[in-house]
Design a protein around this nucleic acid. Structure first.
Length: 192
DNA sequence: AGCACGATTAACT
DNA sequence: GTTAATCGTGCTC
């Protein structure tokens, strides 16, 4: 039986968590079938002072999950059509989360192919909205505890990325937020 | 009540 | 490289 990450795994700073989630396996259960694969790209969003973070305006109905305990899913809707999946970091009361930007699809490929019909394998899960579409994740998963199987979505131990195989850079798609937030290297990716 | 914009993607020229 | 799609969220009036 594959081992799920314990809730204690998320009890660390969001920057550390964003690095350590690389290589861990995201698993979605659809009609009893496993769908997903190892996480290969993440971004960290940290606190109200981070002007690229949704919690910059404080606690609202939308951002409430980010203030909760680590290991919960923060799923939000944007651009009128896309769902994004985040993993909330500890400590409770401090708003921080890791955006899951890409995974390497290894399980449930039939369903993924169906969800991403017409696109090449390379384009199946190489973007934050692509992976939620591939794994059939939407707003109904907001608040799910990723350290249990209760929500049909969880994260398992995998082969952690080493420092040598880690690429670090600025976050993407955050528009014109002022420095230092625009250029701060809080995006993490495993080298091909 | 109204408005500008968004942690993006895909389909264009 | 450029741009439409499309609507919830949070701010301003």
């Amino acid at each position: 039986m594959p081992e799920i990450l314990p809730s204690s795994f998320f009890d660390r700073d969001v920057l550390t968590l964003a690095r350590q989630l690389l290589g861990m396996r995201l698993v979605r259960l659809v009609d009893g079938r496993r769908v997903g694969g190892p996480i290969v790209e993440t971004e960290a969003y940290r606190g109200q002072e981070d002007l690229a973070c949704h919690a910059r305006h404080g606690r609202t109905r939308r951002t409430a999950v980010m203030y909760g305990p680590g290991g919960r899913a923060y799923v939000y809707f944007t651009y009128g059509m896309h769902w994004m999946l985040n993993c909330v970091a500890s400590p409770e009361g401090f708003p921080a989360a890791v955006l899951l930007r890409a995974i390497q699809p290894t399980e449930g490929l039939e369903l993924i192919a169906q969800q991403r019909a017409g696109r090449s394998v390379q384009e199946w899960c190489n973007g934050p909205a692509k992976l939620t579409q591939a794994l059939a994740i939407d707003g109904g998963f907001n608040g799910v505890d990723l350290s249990t199987r209760d929500g049909n979505l969880w994260i398992e131990w995998g082969e952690a990325a080493t420092e040598e195989n880690l690429v670090v850079g600025p976050r993407v798609g955050i528009g014109g937020v002022p420095e230092p937030w625009l250029s701060i290297p809080w995006r993490f990716r495993t080298r091909l």
